[in-house]
Amino acid sequence: MAVSYKKLILNGIFSENPVFRLALSLCPAVAVTTSVRNGFLMGIAVLCVMTMVNITVSILRNLINPKVRIPAYILIIATYVSITDMVMSAYSRAAYKEMGLYIQLIVVFAIIISRAELFASKNKVLPSAVDGFGMGLGFLGALVLVGAVRELIGKGSIAGIHLTGGNPLLIMVLPTGGFFVIGLLMGLFNWIDQKYYGGRPGGVGGGHH
């Protein structure tokens, strides 16, 4: 099977975007995306963890007994998340203060274990790494986009740069606003897909966290 790496990357970013298309890992997508900066940091953390997990699972795929593969994957994910947590707490204090709570939550992100189970456990190392990277990019992009919309409307700034004066719509930086923005962006993605690519509404579905 010839795997097109470009296709794998694009798959993660667009056609199977974790947040907008698969509706996976919505909790963090709502919780941390109050600004571009937070969305970006979380996205980078997930991107790293996901790529490393996919690589590791792919390397070990013939050594892990299929009967205990899920606990094994969780252990691998938890190890990488703990490493990220420890490294950030020591070397990136400012970011850790804002993100610390959410970093540990990466362990239970459905998107990571689903890629380990659906892709990395069945593919060679390089494609698995590319898949993890592509999915991570899709997640990163989604978080930055949601963060940008919420920060712009909720605080009147983008990436900390003040753009508008007056009274921003505070609700956008509250969790409620996160749901509003993700819902509307999901709708927009579906609309684009239907209008330009002939996709069926609700063709791919998810709904896990």
């Binding site: 050594l63 892990i64 007994n65 606990p71 490493i83 420890m86 490294v87």
Partner: peptide, 27 residues
């Protein structure tokens, strides 16, 4: 199966303790 899991746990444990030893004093 048990050996399989034990091996993974042991490996994870070693990696984590090494990381902790390096990062914790800094933290």
């Amino acid at each position: 199966i048990t050996l399989n899991l034990v091996a993974i746990c042991a490996l994870a444990g070693v990696i984590l303790s090494v990381t902790w030893t390096i990062t914790n004093p800094v933290k």
